[in-house]
Write a protein that binds this DNA or RNA. Structure first.
Length: 420
RNA sequence: GCGGUUAUGGUGAAGUGGUUAACACACCGGAUUGUGGUUCCGGCAUGCGUGGGUUCGAUCCCCACUAACCGCCCCA
């Protein structure tokens, strides 16, 4: 049997690669606008990094990591997300000491999670993410959200919903956590197995459970908003006020918990149009304890990550076409042996002059060569045959209007450049 | 990790336990001795996901495997 692509992966063929290029270009453009700088980190890291950074109780660490030992017996893992790596690099290169603070960073690259594939969920997928390290200013929270929305808007997506929540600072979280345990403990037996395990480890995530979503205790569960201390409450109010000022609509959802352990204060998601069950396009939040957790100084941080794959699905649902029209400037049609000898030479001259040019390589007849030129959306066709070689002139046909002219060989590039 | 559906050419898809596997699109060629997007005509699966089994015989029946899609869990 022929070898197949690994499960949960996919090839981006030329037709789609154009879309990827366009999306990536827009991401970089938006980041430049907001003054975010690119950072590139390795695709694998020490397994410890994710265990400590992402959190031992998360599904990602418990069952989704692509981990392996290398020949030097090191425990390594294909990165399941980008934040831990960025923070590791920030600490390792002491970027907290750099003069330009905060560090506003972005990345685009593949991530890996061992999951059951489905539309919008793959084992290798691509994230565009931003991280801001070193600032606890609420305007940064709003800026990061505004950046993501600007990106989607520039791409052309319309059906977007921003969902917002605050998990508060550690003190608030602790108070909430205790209230949650007190609330659920007496009747925890009525909940699913996962929730029973979550009770002591991370009761917050019980709220995230879909299975027991309709349980009366779920509805009456203590909400984080009632446990935010004054500082946390004020912070969240400021973030909301800035978003209001920017004219950004959002929906508050006190059950928006997010799956990674490092989040506190502001958390957010952007939902989009989708055919299936998966609607989350982007997720993020503040993680003020993560830098110190990974061995750096006490440093605030915030970031988001969004999936290019899901973005493409949303584009499909909204029926938005992204294709850049990559036209060919000219196509050389050769008739007869002498012309076929001449064609590659002529082609080379055209290309050296900066014209996007191609010819037939399938021994097609004249008609077939024209069809090929048409398929490639060539704007001009240059026809050469015995007569043209004798006269040192080519027939140049404008494919848009069908007109054609005789142009001397040494005038060709000038003529085309003028017309294009 | 669990449950469901599916698997025929480059693509979309019909189909039958028994010599040649519909049809459409795409592609190639011809009608137009050197001209595209229209029309007409012709060509185009030694093969029906992979591996076994049942059978005189299997693309069609059975089993396993693999993969895709959908749902659950969770997430981007």
């Amino acid at each position: 049997m022929t070898i197949q692509i690994p499960r949960g992966t996919y090839d981006v063929l030329p037709e789609d690669a154009v879309k990827w290029q366009k999306i990536e270009a827009i991401a970089r453009e938006i980041c430049a606008l907001f003054n975010y700088k690119e950072i590139r980190t390795p695709i694998f890291e020490s397994t410890d990094l994710f265990q400590r950074g992402v959190g031992d109780t998360t599904d990602i660490v418990q069952k989704e990591m692509y981990s392996f030992k290398d020949r030097g017996d090191r425990d390594l893992t294909l990165r399941p997300e980008g934040t831990a790596s960025v923070v590791r690099a920030y600490v390792e290169h002491k970027l907290y000491g750099a003069p330009n603070q905060p560090q506003k960073l972005y990345y685009i690259g593949p991530m890996f999670r061992y999951e059951r594939p489905q539309a919008g969920r793959n084992r290798q997928f691509t994230q565009f993410g931003c991280e801001v390290l070193g600032s606890a200013d609420p305007s940064i929270d709003a800026e990061v959200i505004a950046l993501a929305l600007s990106f989607y808007r520039k791409i052309g997506l319309k059906k977007l919903k921003l969902v917002l929540n605050s998990l508060g600072d550690p003190e608030s979280r602790k108070a909430h956590r205790e209230a949650l345990i007190a609330h659920f403990k007496p009747s925890i037996g009525e909940f699913c197995e996962d929730c029973q395990n979550r009770l002591e480890k991370n009761p917050l995530r019980i709220l995230d459970c879909k299975e027991d979503h309709n349980h009366p205790l779920m509805v009456s569960a203590p909400s984080i908003v009632d446990y935010l201390n004054e500082a946390s409450h004020d912070y969240f109010e400021k973030v909301k006020a800035i978003l209001d000022g920017m004219g950004i609509d959002y929906e508050l959802d006190p059950t928006l918990v997010r799956g990674l352990d490092y989040y506190n204060h502001t958390t957010f998601e952007i939902m989009g149009a989708s055919q299936g069950a998966i609607t989350t396009l982007m997720g993020g939040g503040r993680y003020n304890g993560l830098v110190s957790e990974l061995g750096g100084p006490e440093t605030p941080g915030i970031g988001f990550a969004l999936s290019i794959e899901r973005l493409l699905l949303a584009l499909e649902v909204e029926k938005i076409e992204l294709d850049a029209d990559a036209l060919l400037d000219c196509f050389v049609v050769a008739i007869g042996d002498p012309a076929e000898q001449k064609a590659p030479v002529l082609l080379n001259q055209l290309r050296q002059a900066g014209l996007r040019a191609d010819k037939d390589y399938m021994a097609r007849k004249v008609k077939g060569q024209f069809k090929q030129a048409d398929r490639e959306r060539a704007r001009f066709v240059i026809v050469i045959g015995d007569e043209e070689l004798d006269a040192q002139k080519a027939v140049v046909k404008n494919m848009a209007d069908g007109t054609q002219e005789n142009i001397a060989f040494d005038e060709l590039t000038n003529y085309l450049k003028e017309k294009l």
